[in-house]
């Protein structure tokens, strides 16, 4: 780390701008705060919103974890980790419990987060009403007037067409009973983890220049009709082929040789931890 540069890549003015937007976002849960999104050394749409939040929040003693679709070792996660480490010198980790700051794309870790942690989510499309209304000034007005019939209409259409809500990810949520928010493309499985979360959840969209937040202990309710209640993805009867965990979010994979469908933990660090603990127990047992 060179001493003549600012800490954490950004100049102080940029950090101030992003922190100011973040504070406003925390004060108005679910409201999309516009901010002056910076030019980053990675392309827009590759996590610049999350990265800007991370770089504006990070301190020298923080421990960082970066997840990309549940994986700690994918290219995107590794490059972001490298960039932050080279410009701050902070420690990075794969362990969810060890981290103070977790930047994630499309997943919330399986291990429940605590009040000492901050989760930063990367958001490609922050506007839940965009598919029904292309104009920004119109969607802003709809938010201000609490007019969310468009978001409901999208779910209604899916039910009419497919017999169920077909949101694979990014199922819209009501935050604190007021704003409808895009929770970023996390699977429906992760939506309930946002409800009354102990950790602060910040969402950043670099390309769309928006920051929004779910403060700790905030009600987050997934949109659902009376006769079609909200349901998470079901992995009934399946377990991870590596660590044997059930009741977590599993990836469905097809074995290229046998053509069989197999399931595996999506959260790689969770899987590794399960494997290590069984290994450790096995070693301890064999010594005893």
């Amino acid at each position: 780390m060179r001493a003549n540069t600012h800490f954490a890549f950004f100049d102080e003015g940029s950090k101030k701008e992003i922190r100011r937007a973040t504070l406003k976002a925390v004060a108005i849960p679910g409201y999309q705060v516009p901010f002056a999104s910076r030019e980053m050394p990675i392309a827009r749409g590759w996590g610049t919103g999350g990265l800007q939040l991370t770089l504006s929040l990070i301190g020298k003693t923080d421990v960082l974890k970066v997840i990309d679709q549940g994986a700690d070792e994918s290219v995107n996660a590794v490059s972001i980790k490298k960039l932050v480490q080279e410009t701050t010198g902070v420690q990075v980790t794969d362990q969810t419990e060890e981290a103070d700051l977790i930047q994630s794309r499309h997943r919330i870790p399986e291990i429940p987060l605590t009040k000492d942690q901050i989760l930063v989510l990367q958001v490609p499309m922050p506007e839940p009403l965009r598919p029904v209304e292309a104009r920004e000034y119109a969607t802003k007005r709809m938010h201000s007037e609490d007019d969310y019939s468009g978001a409901w209409l999208m779910l209604f259409e899916q039910i009419v067409k497919y017999g169920k809500t077909a949101t694979a990810a990014d199922h819209p949520v009501y935050v604190n009973g007021r704003y409808v928010m895009a929770p970023s493309p996390i699977p429906r499985f992760d939506n309930p983890k946002m409800h009354q979360s102990e950790a602060l959840i910040l969402l950043g969209a670099g390309r769309e220049k928006k920051i929004y937040a779910v403060p700790p202990y905030t009600a987050v309710e997934s949109l659902a009709f009376e006769d079609y209640p909200f349901a998470v993805e079901s992995f009934e009867g399946q377990e991870c082929r590596l660590c044997g965990s059930a009741h977590i979010f599993l990836d469905e994979l097809i074995d290229q040789k046998t053509g069989e469908t197999v399931y595996q933990c999506n959260d790689t660090s969770y899987c590794m931890e399960q494997l290590n603990s069984t290994e450790k127990a096995g070693v301890e047992n064999s010594y005893a």
């Binding site: 209409l153 009419v160 009376e226």
Partner: peptide
Amino acid sequence: KMNFSSVGNIAEKLIAAGNRNVGE
């Protein structure tokens, strides 16, 4: 809304008026 189903178009007005029951 030209890219939503006819049923959905009518439901939009009902949703706006506060209905949250798909079957109805």
